[in-house]
Design a protein around this nucleic acid. Structure first.
Lengths: 207, 207
DNA sequence: TGTGGTTGGATAGTCATAATATCCAGTATT
DNA sequence: AATACTGGATATTATGACTATCCAACCACA
């Protein structure tokens, strides 16, 4: 199909499609002459993926390019690839520091196995420091509660990853980490309503 | 203290402090003449709060202003205020649509009490639609699993809200929603590592 | 074979956000 | 009185994500 059909099917403006092409988020079509190229079904779905990553997961265009590169051709095993993908997810941290005291303590309190160089450790450090700086430090009690349930959620995630095909597993893991996160955030906000109204009575509300 | 001391204590550049003052994120100091004003301890902590909201929770400066306004003087009850705050949290949706089929179905599957006009409903709709559009729709099984544990997390959140003082409760709820979210996201990313290494063996990794 | 609408490719322009920088006249401090 | 600092106003920059224009080469149809 021509580029105009891609535009029509995806709803993304032509100028923007060209921009993604230029930035290398979208692979070029198969050239059929100096002024024409053919695109396929995969270009349409790639466009949907780009919009999901940028609009919903909140990635910048350049980070989206990184994630798409990992999904297209994972450079290594699941562990390494997922680590790189997590580093491309917001919040972006320019982390030269090698010490993450709050995160270390928290993860050790939970008794989890972890790799101190994993980007999520720095992300946790920053988030804990932010909460602390506004006078809402995380208590051990709360941490343990969160940890238990977050771990249960992670177990659900992992059981869904297709086994066998390594590439499919990596794609699923990378996209699942990025795209289910906003779902969890929205569910938590909604759960605050349900809990407060069904356990404390009154109309929906509260936290 | 003078403005220069605020700058020194907070680490935020002078030009930026003036910018926040101009934008109304930071209240003006107590004027003590045409070219001087005194600032207090609360200005320093307000600055920390601004940075936490913008850098960690990912709010724009204008949404931060909205949230700070709610925290300063909640216009109404906890329910209404929290609803407005949730609407100021990313992802920002310009929602005119009144129909959220995926979100409705999901919340009804969970059996939760909810208000269809709550911003988180639209946020959930978008997130579910995004996952679906890339070929990773949320299964009922996964939804029920997520729901159970997210609800448990929400119950922890609510037991921490100070009761009695309504204003303190609102502040805690608004900030807790925004600032604990990145903590949960980071913990989930880390839990993927722990689960895959401790239950599947091998070194940390996988999802 | 003409001819009007597309196309790819290149380049330039726009818009919003979030700072940063500069200027200035008027103090505060010494 | 001299110097440094202040508030307030205004101007400038940097970045990101598009959006718009141009143009020569086509291609498809009449």
């Amino acid at each position: 199909m021509r580029i105009s059909e891609i535009v029509e099917r995806s709803g993304v403006p032509l100028a923007t499609v060209k921009y993604y092409l230029r930035e290398g988020l979208l692979p070029p079509g198969e050239s059929t002459g100096a002024t024409s190229a053919r695109y396929g079904e995969d270009h349409v779905s790639r466009l949907a993926l780009i919009r999901a990553l940028t609009d919903v997961a909140g990635l910048s265009v350049s980070k989206t390019k990184v994630v798409l590169g990992l999904v297209d051709s994972p450079p290594a095993d699941l562990y390494t690839t997922l680590g790189q993908a997590v580093g491309a997810l917001p919040p972006y941290i320019d982390d030269d520091v090698e010490d993450h005291p709050r995160a270390r303590t928290a993860i050790e309190t939970l008794g989890w196995i972890y790799d101190p160089s994993y980007p999520a450790v720095a992300q946790l450090e920053r988030a804990l420091a932010a909460a602390e700086s506004v006078g809402m430090p995380m208590s051990d009690q709360r941490l343990l509660g969160y940890g238990e349930h977050v771990r249960a959620i992670a177990r659900i995630d992992i059981t869904q990853v297709p086994s066998g095909d390594a590439k499919a597993a990596i794609q699923y893991a990378v996209l699942g980490t990025a795209l289910y996160e906003p779902i969890l955030a929205a569910l938590r906000r909604l759960a605050h309503q349900d809990v407060s109204s069904s356990e404390l009575g009154g109309r929906p509300g509260g936290m």
